[in-house]
Design a protein around this nucleic acid. Structure first.
Length: 259
DNA sequence: ATGGTGGTTCAACCA
């Protein structure tokens, strides 16, 4: 089973690229973030024509996540538990089964948290605490769990070309990094780090200042695997070639395969 | 320090 996560940065602006990528990479499960569309505006048919089932959790203008799968999407759950007053669409989860492998997969768009000094940063940290609680609860199922998405976290200096440029950014604050480690320390493994421990593996390059041309990237998109998912992990990587396309997303897809 | 780019929606917000 191949699971891929991609912050698409607007599904309407990116539909041709998204379809080209799906045809080429052929993920069994595709987790999308920042669809920036309401559910009714998502181009469902373009993907059902390719054999995918589609489940969206959208909102107008911003945010929005989706799960696409060649296998049936079962027990779909929308929204991160823990705060009924939070109306931002940043989390969708479902179960996907291939043969004897049944995986609980989440598509996650974690809050950016910038600028520091506003209500956005405490919102991010509160959201991460809710994610940790939910990640802990998911472990009790003892099934393979894949938490996939744009975490808006730079975990380590090696995850940035220029770490010093991020010290005043919400993505690289000590509190942010600590909250991310807490989830890892529950027993969730960073799939790409496990397969590619070397520095220089990035998933995001800003549109500005020629970041892509200079490979001035950061690694902020992840697949975090429960122990039972790690048992089945065979390979993982970043499809950075999409960043060089015309009208690209500023994020590249992150994939992992399970046997 | 500033401004550099881009999507969505319609002047502003988010990243």
């Amino acid at each position: 089973m191949k699971i891929t996560t991609w912050n698409i940065n607007g599904i309407k602006a990116r539909i041709e690229g998204a379809l080209a990528y799906v045809r080429e990479a052929k993920p069994d499960v595709l987790c999308l973030q920042e669809i920036k569309s309401v559910d009714e505006g998502f181009p469902v048919e373009a993907f059902t024509d390719l054999g995918y089932q589609v489940a969206t959790h959208g909102q107008k203008g911003f945010n929005g996540v989706a799960l696409l799968s060649l296998f049936p999407l079962e027990d779909i759950s929308r929204g991160l538990p823990g705060d009924d007053a939070d109306i931002q669409s940043r989390f969708i989860e479902a179960t996907v089964t291939e043969g004897d492998l049944s995986v609980r997969v989440a598509s996650i768009y974690l809050p950016n948290g910038n600028p520091l000094g506003t209500e956005k940063f405490p919102y991010k940290l509160a959201w991460m605490a809710r994610l940790e609680a939910h990640a802990r609860a998911l472990l009790e199922s003892e099934m393979p769990v894949v938490l996939a998405g744009d975490f808006n976290v730079i975990p380590e200096p090696a995850d940035a070309k220029r770490p010093a440029a991020w010290v005043n950014d919400a993505l690289f604050q000590p509190e942010t990094r600590s909250a991310f480690r807490k989830i890892e320390n529950l027993g969730y493994q960073d799939a790409v780090r496990a397969c590619h421990p070397e520095p220089g593996v990035y998933t995001f390059w800003d549109y500005q200042a020629g970041a892509w041309q200079k490979d001035d990237g950061i690694r902020i998109d992840f697949q975090l695997l429960s122990p039972q998912a790690t048992d089945r992990l065979s390979a993982a990587g970043v499809d950075r070639f999409t960043r060089g396309w015309e009208k690209p997303s500023d994020h590249a897809p992150v994939w992992a395969t399970f046997a």
